[in-house]
Design a protein around this nucleic acid. Sequence first.
DNA 1: TATTATTGTCTAATTTTTAGACAATAATAT
DNA 2: ATATTATTGTCTAAAAATTAGACAATAATA
Lengths: 241, 241
Amino acid sequence: MQFLNGQDYIQQVSIDCVIFGYQKKQLKVLVPKLALKGDFSSLPGGFILQNESIDQAARRILQARTGLKDIYLEQFRVFGDLGRNNMPFFEQIVGLNQEQQGAESFNRKELEWITRRFISIGYYALVDIHQVVPQKSEIDQSIEWYTINELPSMIMDHNQIVDDALQSLRLSLDQKLIGFTLLPEIFTMKDLQELYETIYDKPFARNNFQKKMLELDVLDRLEKKFTGAANKAPYLYRFRK
Amino acid sequence: MQFLNGQDYIQQVSIDCVIFGYQKKQLKVLVPKLALKGDFSSLPGGFILQNESIDQAARRILQARTGLKDIYLEQFRVFGDLGRNNMPFFEQIVGLNQEQQGAESFNRKELEWITRRFISIGYYALVDIHQVVPQKSEIDQSIEWYTINELPSMIMDHNQIVDDALQSLRLSLDQKLIGFTLLPEIFTMKDLQELYETIYDKPFARNNFQKKMLELDVLDRLEKKFTGAANKAPYLYRFRK
DNA sequence: TATTATTGTCTAATTTTTAGACAATAATAT
DNA sequence: ATATTATTGTCTAAAAATTAGACAATAATA
């Protein structure tokens, strides 16, 4: 972990990203598991270089994990309580990984750096899950999409951060036209409705939902989608950029 | 400025507070002017001690400037662009205050500290302006309430921060019951309506505004207010805590 | 050609918002 | 005392928006 040295990064400030995806009527979050004994999961995150803005830092972190360059991104909250540090986490690691590579791979200075109190800027990202090729970082054992109701227990307050992100997402969804960023470019009205129902965790009336979406005047109606099912074929739509 | 030394504070993170008050149908912001040649104004701000949460830091800063302990407080955004530093500001100061006390009162180390890039957490506060006794800090020449449309030009992006704060305030106002915190404890329906009209900068229909507020079921109706005016006396109301 | 599941859209019912009206009232003027 | 004035409290109708119900259109299969 030699990348943590010195003053390249702003001290004691981190970025944590809640990466939302959507698949099979489920809202998902991309979560890596650390390559250490003991099943530690942690939101994708990182630090801010001295010569990049916080938004740039978030994009860099997101690109590293998703491979995507243009991502819908929203800063939603800063987490700055006392006791936001990795000390308990590293103590556990040291205990569990006595003769492993994990704890030893940190030198003393790095350990001091990473176990100090951190203020974390929370971002959420909305991605088309099909475009993402999840990428482990060098400290990850794996990285996976988890359904939002089946998230693993994560370090520090990361589970709380996801809850906050979802709340912010719901608040913004009907003010800004951001829902589409979770879908493939082309979708049916039913796809869109199911997405909304998933995010808000409640049903919408089909007729009125459709009317409302069309009244927004941001959807282009394309050709029909013939699936081979024994029923009327729905139109495909695309968000007008 | 010996309080800036060492590691007592989190490095490169600041807090900037937009303190909103309301008086005579005008929304006001409390802004200090720095005790330096050249009319420099700057939002009330400060830094975060290692052993306090960011909210505690904001409360400490607010209490120092307003004298008030319990203040409605909302964290609304982080400002983290590149180039957010006090360098240009200090260069001006040094130029203007050659043989003054200003620039000389910083030692080399402090100057280095304060002129680095900063990430700033924006808070806005809502106060009953009549309860506030504005207090200068040791670096202020004066501190004053400014009508929001007549704010002085402030250093860095502080004018932008106020704009963002107002936008956030408007968004929250009809979701949360926070408007009352800008009024004295007891007020008439007209007072309340004028407050809303000031914040949103648009008129509301009197009859419907009153109905809506009463339907919220958070106001206690008290006795009438007899002003001596030749007309029907309005009821006084109090927000039910 | 009938059947089935689903979609697109129309309309009525209901609720909410907006606008208008007017009586009540506390002082002042006559 | 009584009329006048400015403002407040509240009612109701009109308009708009939301919700719910209905049904025809359609693409496959039986």
